Amino acid sequence: MPQATRPTQLSPSRALDFQQCPLLYRFRAVDRLPEPPSKAQVQGTLVHSVLERLYEVEAGRRTPEEALALIEPEWAKLQAGEDVSELFSGLDDESSWLRGVRRLVETYFSMEDPTRLEPHRTECLVTTTLDDGTQLKGFIDRADVNGDGLVRLVDYKTGRRPPERYSEKPIFQMKFYALVWWRTRGTIPKLLRLMYLGDGRFLDYSPTQDELEGFEKGLKALWATMREAIATGQFRPQQSKLCGWCAHQKLCPEFGGEPPNYPLPTVLPGLEMPPT
């Protein structure tokens, strides 16, 4: 069982966890309870690895054939580092799943030509500390910078593009990256691009300085709320349609369960919180 930790940084995924359900955030970020990987999650990891490796070869060799040839070795590496044997019922099931991975990689080439791109960075770690001490951390799939210094941040998604009414979460993630990029490099990205390989569609967004300043204020307020929950151990469950995909229903009061004892020292609400 992983050892519990006191979170000191905010990432887009953990911020979205807390907004969805504070108790889910606690289970993932504080208790660090294990969650079995899903086929979709492993598929996303594999496709991301293939596309990252693709940009490590010279531009002229970034062909569909080269990318497809990377799938097997990257899959072998992933299997060596993570137990995914229970995901598949047999060789036919795994073969069918790998055909799906190949289709996603092929779709990528229908969306852009990697031989004409020279990314500034791939799988780029970005971190910053805001003026109130809030620490932000994230990984950007790809950062492109053109000759005029204009920045495009790109994120690959292996699902289908969501309807507009459900685009808030992916745009939140990209605004997070844009804010950290701006605060560390002094340049506001011109374009935030999500590439949905499930249907070959894009979701583009161009942030403004006013938007990012407002977003920054919101993150500061969110982290203050999260810090108080971490200090007091009070994480309320929040039921939604997403509960059906939660790995921790048996521990959730909304489903008749009981969370484990809070693993960190606590203080009473309103008192000075432990340092982060």
Score class of each variant (00 low, 15 high):
P162K: 01
P163T: 03
E164F: 12
E164M: 11
E164C: 09
R165E: 15
Y166A: 15
S167F: 11
E168Y: 12
K169V: 14
K169T: 15
P170Q: 06
P170I: 05
F172V: 10
F172L: 07
Q173W: 00
Q173G: 06
M174E: 15
M174F: 13
K175W: 12
Y177D: 12
L179T: 02
V180W: 03
W181L: 07
W181S: 11
W182V: 06
T184V: 02
R185Y: 12
G186H: 04
G186A: 05
T187K: 15
T187F: 10
T187D: 10
T187L: 12
T187A: 14
P189Y: 04
P189S: 02
K190G: 04
L191A: 01
L192C: 11
L192Y: 10
R193V: 04
R193N: 09
M195E: 11
Y196W: 03
Y196P: 00
G198C: 09
G200I: 00
G200C: 01
R201T: 00
F202T: 00
F202C: 00
F202N: 00
D204R: 08
Y205S: 12
S206G: 10
S206A: 15
P207Q: 02
P207T: 03
P207C: 03
E211F: 00
E211R: 00
E211K: 01
E211P: 01
L212K: 05
L212S: 00
L212R: 03
E213H: 05
G214W: 01
G214I: 01
F215C: 05
G218R: 00
G218P: 02
G218F: 02
L219H: 07
L219M: 08
L219N: 06
K220R: 14
K220I: 07
A221T: 13
A221M: 11
A221E: 13
L222M: 08
L222V: 08
L222S: 03
W223M: 12
A224L: 10
A224W: 11
A224E: 11
M226H: 06
M226F: 07
M226A: 06
M226W: 09
M226I: 15
R227E: 14
I230G: 09
A231C: 02
T232H: 01
T232V: 07
T232W: 05
G233V: 05
Q234V: 08
Q234P: 01
F235C: 01
F235P: 02
R236H: 06
R236F: 06
R236W: 04
P237L: 09
Q239K: 11
Q239G: 15
S240V: 13
K241V: 13
K241H: 10
K241N: 12
L242C: 06
L242V: 05
C243Y: 10
G244T: 05
G244W: 02
W245T: 06
C246V: 14
A247P: 15
A247S: 15
